[in-house]
Design a protein around this nucleic acid. Structure first.
Length: 486
RNA sequence: GGUCGGAUGGCCGAGUGGCUAGGCAGAGGUCUGCAAAACCUCCUACAGCGGUUCGAAUCCGCUUCCGACCUCCA
């Protein structure tokens, strides 16, 4: 077991050595999407970041239970703890059942994440599937004295909680300032304190998504589902809780409060937060209307895009930035990643074809060590990728016959590429039909070789240009001609 | 207004008290029938102003600018 891994813990605001509570087992909970609309690229970044983290933990031989929820109930439009939830509103707009909305966008979410080559979580619980657990948790919080009932709704008493616990432990804010600065919600508010939040919300007569509870018909507040489901599947205290940075101040702060109030323990040892994807320096978000949909990016069908970019290019682009840094989205940046990604993958494809020598000019163990050092330093994929480009340079140089490698080092190199490029970074070759096309292309290449041997360059160039238009690029070496997809 | 985080070469992005990533773009070269690819070489930056230090892009202070959170958002 590798215990050199260091992770940045939002809770302590510093990097800490990663020590699972129950090694080799690791429990990881990541806040998933609210499925009332299409996921945009910003959402995808978070899930791709945690996919990287999950993949690396698995690579380190941890037995990870990865839980990521689907929020399909209880997420209100505003924070007034009144009015519609997002599903009811969307359902009315589209004249559908709320659960049709949920189903449609859950499927869309899964499709997108599959395209990005992310590994599904081990458990993907839904809020609607865990109403009973949420009710039980609310009851317990009431029994422990940290929540109160009003008119069929239940609210968490932040002021009371903050007398015994540090409510703002995650974000280190001053609670008095928070109270002073939080928005005045106007006259109809049922809540006692401005920071109080709903655990259970009474359903209005027209509200479709409703369940019976000790407090009448209603639906759960947004935050309680994660507390209920994470503790159900991972225990009262588990190893990693993750999500986007935007969730830390409110959602995760409230999760910690609920769990403390219910279980008298902090829910997670390490809190990991991923940073935002920005467009022109501003956060991509649904409400700001600057969100790209994955489909728009792939097709290039968006007014800010010059052309489309493939899913793996986008994944690679995201992994070239550290997960805790903002990443700005632009045509130029995508273009650069696209070219770099292809160069890397072309080199990786050459590894199996390399010839060995009886001595080696390269020390792959050292290179490998640097890749691990990078990933062990809070999953620093950009540095790992930089090292992999060094590997690519080595591979190309060997392939060109300018550098020698022995069998032992070649074996290490092959393992390095396999482990890091494919398993950990989760990149994959996007070209399809290579196996079927191979013999066909080889046949054409042989025809062209004959033409070249006859110095019939008109024909040989015609073949090369024709294949290029079909997306196949020929590369003439001294001895032979190789090809790759454009 | 409060809290927090940033400002790195043409662009994107790591790093962080001395060894000064990487990708893309650009320049030159090798190879080649010509290309392409690949390889080699070059381009050596850390917002501004002070301070600490033998030495700072990295630490401290101030200034300017930007962003996030504080309201649903990954």
């Amino acid at each position: 077991m590798n215990n050199n891994l260091v992770v940045y813990n939002t809770l302590t605001r510093k990097k800490e050595v990663f020590e699972p509570i129950n090694a080799p087992f690791v429990g990881m909970y990541v806040c998933g999407p609210t499925v009332y609309g299409d996921v945009h690229l910003g959402n995808c970044r978070t899930f791709i970041s945690f996919d990287l983290i999950y993949r690396y933990l698995v690579h380190l031989k941890y037995k990870v239970r990865y839980v990521r929820n689907i929020t399909d109930a209880g997420h209100l439009e505003g924070d007034h703890d009144e009015g519609d939830d997002k599903f009811s509103k969307k359902a009315r707009l589209e004249k559908l059942e709320p659960m049709e909305i949920v189903q449609r966008y859950t499927i869309g979410f899964h499709d997108v994440l599959r395209i990005f080559n992310t590994i599904p979580p081990n458990i993907e619980p839904t809020a609607t599937g865990h109403i009973a657990e949420q009710i039980e948790m609310v009851k317990e919080i009431i029994d422990n004295g940290f929540a109160y009932k009003i008119n069929g709704s239940v609210y968490f008493d932040v002021e009371k909680y903050s007398k015994e616990y540090n409510y703002t432990i995650l974000t280190n804010r001053n609670i008095d300032d928070l109270i002073a600065n939080s928005r005045d919600l106007g006259g109809q508010d049922e809540k006692k304190g401005r920071l109080d939040f709903a655990l259970w919300i009474k359903a209005k007569p027209e509200h479709i998504m409703r369940w019976p509870s000790p407090w009448g018909w209603g639906f759960p507040g947004w935050h309680i589902e994660c507390s209920a489901m994470s503790s159900k599947y991972l225990g009262d205290t588990f190893d990693i809780h993750g999500g986007g940075m935007d969730l830390a101040a409110t959602h995760h702060t409230n999760e910690i409060a609920q769990s403390q109030a219910c279980h008298h323990t902090e829910p997670a040892k390490y809190w990991l937060h991923t940073n935002m994807l920005t467009v022109n320096g501003t956060r991509m978000s649904k409400s700001a209307g600057n969100g790209f949909l994955p489909a728009e990016l792939f097709t290039g069908n968006h007014h800010l895009l010059k052309r489309g970019f493939s899913p793996m290019t986008v994944r690679f682009f995201m992994l070239q930035a550290h997960y805790r840094s903002t990443l700005d989205f632009s045509n130029e940046a995508l273009e650069a990643s696209d070219k770099g990604f292809r160069r890397l993958m072309n080199a990786c494809a050459l590894v199996e074809k390399l010839q060995t020598s009886d001595h080696s000019d390269v020390d792959i163990a050292k290179l490998s060590r640097r890749c691990y050092d990078a990933m062990n330093d809070d999953f620093n994929s950009p540095v790992a990728i930089a090292e992999l480009f060094e590997a690519a340079r080595v591979i190309n140089s060997i392939h060109d016959g300018k550098t020698c490698i022995d069998q032992a080092n070649l074996s290490l190199l092959s393992t390095l590429i396999h482990d890091f490029v494919y398993d950990i970074l989760g990149l994959k070759e996007e070209t399809i039909q290579t196996d079927e096309m191979g013999p066909l292309v080889d046949f054409i290449i042989n025809l062209r070789l004959q033409a070249r041997a006859d110095k019939d360059y008109a024909t040989s160039d015609k073949i090369r240009n024709g294949l290029f238009d079909l997306g196949i690029q020929l590369k003439d070496n001294k001895e032979s001609t190789s090809w790759s997809k454009v």
